[in-house]
Design a protein around this nucleic acid. Structure first.
Lengths: 299, 299
DNA sequence: TAAGGTTACGGCGATCGTAACGATC
DNA sequence: GATCGTTACGATCGCCGTAACCTTA
């Protein structure tokens, strides 16, 4: 048994058990991969893969059971490398942040800018994706840290820290009936609503708020992007329900924002990362920076 | 990085950072070990060991941090091998049981005999040791399963299952004053006591029982071995406090046993094994056998 | 001087790449 | 015939063992 055989098992999983693709990923010829797999299976004494003819079509129960251990080894190996690299120079490296458009545009700019001045040697990659894919990004190690609002509870293997709490706001064009007077869910429900797509930025809290009040919600347009929503609000297509921090008093001075914190439950944006995965010092500092920025928002 | 380098780090720890000893353990020459260590340190970019001259005298912070990952890799690697071996033939293998004399003599015979008839191909090794060393035996992998009564709570990395609950009994020669009448702690305390050595077989519950009653305990002789205690009871050196199951009505018919369950708290014997360590099927069955035998005792 | 560690060098074996072949769609 | 996997063979590179040397108790 050796580490490249362990690595091979991981790569095979990522390539749908395709030896040729795996060989390519590992920068060796396909025949070498084939041989190593056979050698490994021979060493263990039983096959790890189900085969149809020569093609790999699945894993044996033994293979499946062993993949857990394989994952543990690969994780630890990569941790060793990262810890050592971090120890050599904790001021440079790469940081992959998976998040949604809203966070990237309205929350992250400040903490990221501060982080960059402290760690100019760290390259930052933003991996934008939909909320339900964020966790997947962590597991496939395309991202080191995910920042998300929905669906991240009760995931084992993940560390989840609450980042900040926020409310939705209503945005309407100046002069719109809802720009004045008391806002209630009942009153809101009489207008067509523009808000986030399903799964995005607290959409679920909006739905449950209306559902609990026994009201029907008429969502005319759903977007994953606050700016799109604002654009259509400006066109008079309806009233916008967006996260309060996405309202910019200067840029959006043609719109009126109304606080909804009294009639809508709050949402929580969280930071998530893999439990057994080593985070370099700069990543830990980045998280600290996020939490600091979050505190400032709350004030 | 390769697996033998990882293995080397583990062996170095076990040999007090002695390269020559490590080489011997790994069945290669010392120069090879030296080279591999240097290569590994070079690959990581920083030393893992503190050196005085050429001697290794300790680990760097980096080295210490990395040892956790090294342990994880070695664990997973060994798990892979065991899982595969188990899958090949779950009816043979080796089972190391760490336990104390009392368990080995009075509790284990029945479950072990039953286990042997089911798994004649499994070799059983009894690792007798003192209770405070039992856990050490697990961590150093000299034992797969430990059976013990004291000091096994709140160990992380260990799975602990309660096996059975038992009480102490008093044994005295026939005709002894305590062979009749009500037994109280007060009355007991007026006699010299023979019982287990510190740390053994519920010794601590005996002590606390007397202490809570404000009584001084006069322990004339302490042994780790019930048979030694019985021998000295026969010689009239005092009254014996032993585990109830160690009294054999036939073999010990010259002694009288008195139940102490009403005046002495019960003790719990537990089964312990490493958390991230794969236990072969037969080991799992052995544990089931233990729990079954424990149930029968309780009846 | 013994014990522990490093370095140089030669040989052997593991593993790779090339290449030809086999199977399956 | 294109894709995917296996097998044979020669070449290379890594790693071990021998051995000479260095350092410190």
């Amino acid at each position: 048994m050796n580490l490249s055989q362990i690595e091979l098992l991981r790569v095979l999983q990522e390539t749908n058990l395709n030896l040729s693709k795996a060989a390519e990923k590992m920068h060796i010829v396909q025949s070498a991969v084939s041989r190593q797999l056979h050698l490994f299976e021979a060493e263990l004494g039983s096959p790890l893969f189900e085969r149809q003819g020569k093609k790999l079509v699945g894993m044996t129960p033994l293979g499946l059971r062993i993949m857990d251990e394989v994952a543990a080894i690969n994780r630890a190996k990569s941790n060793i490398q990262h810890i050592a690299a971090d120890y050599l120079d904790s001021n440079q490296g790469v940081l992959h942040i998976a998040t949604t458009h809203t966070q990237a545009k309205y929350f992250l700019p400040v903490p990221i800018q501060r982080f960059r001045t402290k760690y100019p040697g760290v390259k930052i990659y933003m991996v934008q994706s939909s909320p339900d894919q964020l966790i997947e990004q962590l597991h496939t190690r395309k991202a080191d840290i995910a920042i998300c609002t929905e669906k991240v509870d009760q995931e084992p293997d993940l560390v989840i820290e609450t980042c900040y709490e926020w409310h939705h706001a209503l945005v309407v064009p100046k002069g719109h009936p809802l720009s004045e007077g008391e806002i209630t869910l009942q009153r809101l429900a009489t207008f067509p609503v523009l808000t986030y797509s399903f799964g995005f930025t607290g959409r679920s809290t909006i739905e449950s708020a209306f559902k609990n009040a026994g009201l029907e919600l008429d969502i005319t347009l759903a977007a994953s992007d606050t700016d799109v929503i604002k654009t259509y609000v400006r066109l008079g297509m309806g009233v916008g329900l967006i996260t309060a921090m996405a309202y910019d008093p200067q840029a959006d001075n043609d719109l009126v924002a109304r606080d909804l914190s009294t009639i809508m439950p709050s949402s929580r944006t969280k930071i998530a990362y893999l439990k057994h995965n080593y985070l370099p010092l700069y990543s830990q500092h980045f998280i600290a920076e996020l939490l600091l920025a979050a505190k400032e928002i709350s004030c």
